[in-house]
Nucleic acid binder design. Sequence first.
DNA 1: CGCTGTGAATGTATTCACAGCG
DNA 2: CGCTGTGAATACATTCACAGCG
Lengths: 216, 216
Amino acid sequence: VSSGPAVRARVSDSSVRRLSGYHRILEDLERQGQEVVSSARLAELAGTNPAQIRKDLSYFGTFGKRGSGYRVEDLRSQILAILGLNRQWKVALVGAGNLGHAIFSYKEFARYGFNVVAILDIDPGKIGQNWDGIRICGWDDCDALLAATGAELAVIATPAAVAQGVVDRMAKAGIRGFLNFAPRKVDVPPEAALRTVNLTIELESLTFDLRDWGRS
Amino acid sequence: VSSGPAVRARVSDSSVRRLSGYHRILEDLERQGQEVVSSARLAELAGTNPAQIRKDLSYFGTFGKRGSGYRVEDLRSQILAILGLNRQWKVALVGAGNLGHAIFSYKEFARYGFNVVAILDIDPGKIGQNWDGIRICGWDDCDALLAATGAELAVIATPAAVAQGVVDRMAKAGIRGFLNFAPRKVDVPPEAALRTVNLTIELESLTFDLRDWGRS
DNA sequence: CGCTGTGAATGTATTCACAGCG
DNA sequence: CGCTGTGAATACATTCACAGCG
């Protein structure tokens, strides 16, 4: 939004991730017809504390009314803009395996404005198939396909071994944001952004919590 | 391992998650025939700094030799034990949709000893199908199925709206660890562990980094 | 010597606590 | 009054820097 304050301070990554959670809760509240919400109530729903919420929001401006709280609809749309979700994003999906397919079909993505406009794979058995009318293209066509579709983000759902190569080529072709599912550290150029989802790390930190429970 | 020191100090979650990353790197090094590795080299591969590595390891014991470094094979197997991966884990998968299927087929999980022993869904069209010989059962059979298979962990790949109910019932049936993919906060009893993977949060924090880039 | 292991120092994130506005 | 917004205080994580062992 043009009216948003958009302060340019250093904001922690965890803050931003929490904002995303607040947004979802505000959607629920809006659906339930709630008009205002306090930081206390929001904190309860988000599983955090009120100060955390107010601090997170304060990095971006001032959204509440003292004495009453936040207008649900306003706050939600402000957060939407802060997160850069008040527009559509064109996404290229690399890797048309099971994981790629699950991501492609994930309804939540489309709901937040992420549109898969290109699918790439190296498997000749996959190339030429299409998913919901989007043709799976070979890796050779990468640059042309990105240019033609105007993809801005890429989801990497390839084997770990090839992830870095994929990112390098796509970054060179102008992709600015990468969501990497390959369980391997990858580097991106400084002008690009990267998030990694490592599913094995999640399971392994879970078993850490449970290891050697001889007691009840 | 029985010789492991297994110190009982408060260890940060990020430390544990990094350990999981070190483990993967050590596997690679072992495969390449490397016998020893220094914290400096490991840091380089992991994208962190040597002190971080030494500190992370120091929470669990002392694994290196001053002057030379760490024996790759030893360190790897020690970390394996620390993470609780030196045994098999029986996993129940709830939700046989696209995401559930992708998780089920994810080779990395099996490689680390996570075995899906039960699959549950509520869709009558899914119930009775089988994946790799594992029959998809209805939610009504939940308790019996968990008891019969001895599942210890659960992967929640259901819609957000039902996630809490699923977790409640499964926790009551004795599941101690949950990996939740539903984009909703869920609570687990104090004796159970929980990790959440929220795919939309990842994409949304990515677009945050890229929002309003008018400059080049 | 070289590299680990670790207390001490620094840097970040979270929480407190209260001034101030509606 | 009630609840936000925020500087100050606390808690936590990372990095430094060096003593000490192989």
